[in-house]
Amino acid sequence: MVEVLKTALGPLGLGHPVINASGTFDLLEADEVLRADLMAEFPFAAYVPKTVTMEPRAGNDPPRLFETAAGLLNSIGLANRGIEAFIDEDLPRLAALPVPLIASIAGERTDDYGRCALLLDECDRVDAVELNISCPNVELGGMALGCDPYKTRQATEYARESTSRFLIVKLTPNVTDITSLARAAVEGGADCISVINTVHGMALDPLRLKPALGHVTGGLSGPAIKPVALRAIYMISREVDVPVIGMGGATTAQDVLEFLAAGASVVAIGTASFRDPLLAARLAGELRVLMEQRGFGSVRELIGHAHKE
C-alpha cells in the first residue's frame, strides 16, 4: 500500500485508514460469492466481524430491512452463533487474513462484556476488541446500556480488567450528550472510541401504513446519517485524548477525507458495502488522490484538520 496512506490505530499498523463497520461485511460468506480472493487481497485495512454475544442469538422477527431516503433501516437484533462458535469455527478460518482483526462483542449486562473479553484475550488472532454498547435493536443491553454513562464506564471497566488488547467502545448517537459517554468510556479504560452506531428510527409500509419492520423500530444507516456522524466525530475528538474511529454514512472518498479532517483516525464503511461489496478496494486509492490534490502528505497531517486554526 502507498506510503502516504499508512497509518496506525494504537498498536495496530494499518495500510490505509479505511476499515469495515461490524455487521456489514462478512468475509467468510462473501469470498465465494464475490468471486474474489478476499482473504489474500482484503480491501479493508482491518477486519471487524459481526458482533458476537455469550449465547447464540436468533435475531429479530422479519422483516428486518427497509430502505429509506438515502438510508437503510435495519432491525437484525444481533443475530449471531455465539462467542464459542466464533472462537472455535470462525477465527481459525481467518488465520491467513493479512490485516488486524477487531472482534466486536455485546452483552445484556455490563459484566457480559468482561466475560466475552476474557475469552477473546486467549485468542492470538484477535488484535483488538470493540464493545458494542450501542445496538438499538435489542431489548436488554445494547443501546439501553450505552445511553447511561455509569453503565458505559462499568462495561468498559469489566472489559478492561479482562483483556490487554486495544479496547474500543462503540457509542450510540441516540443520546443527549454523546461526549459525556465518550468520557465515561475513556475513564473506564477505553483506548479508542468509535462513533456512530445507527440512529434510532422507524418506517411505515407505504401501502398498509403499518410498521415496515417486524421489530417496529430499527437503526438508520447510510448517507442520510453522515452529518450526525460528522458532528459526533468532531465533538468527541475535541473532548477526549484517545483516537476515534468514524463511521455513519461514509460512502465516497470525499466522505472519508471529511471524517478524518473532523478528527477520526480511521473511517469505517458500513452500508456502502451493500451497494458495492468491493467499494473499499477503490476508496483507499481515491483517498490518496484527494489528499494529493489538497496537499496532505500523510494521514496524520489530515486527522483533525477541521479543528486547526
Partner: peptide, 17 residues
C-alpha cells in the same frame, strides 16, 4: 421474496423463519 441489502449472506437482513 424478501427485502435484501447485501444479497450475499452477510447482513442477516432477509431471513425467513
Amino acid at each position: 421474496d424478501t427485502h435484501m441489502a447485501c444479497g450475499v449472506g452477510a447482513c442477516q437482513g432477509c431471513v425467513v423463519e
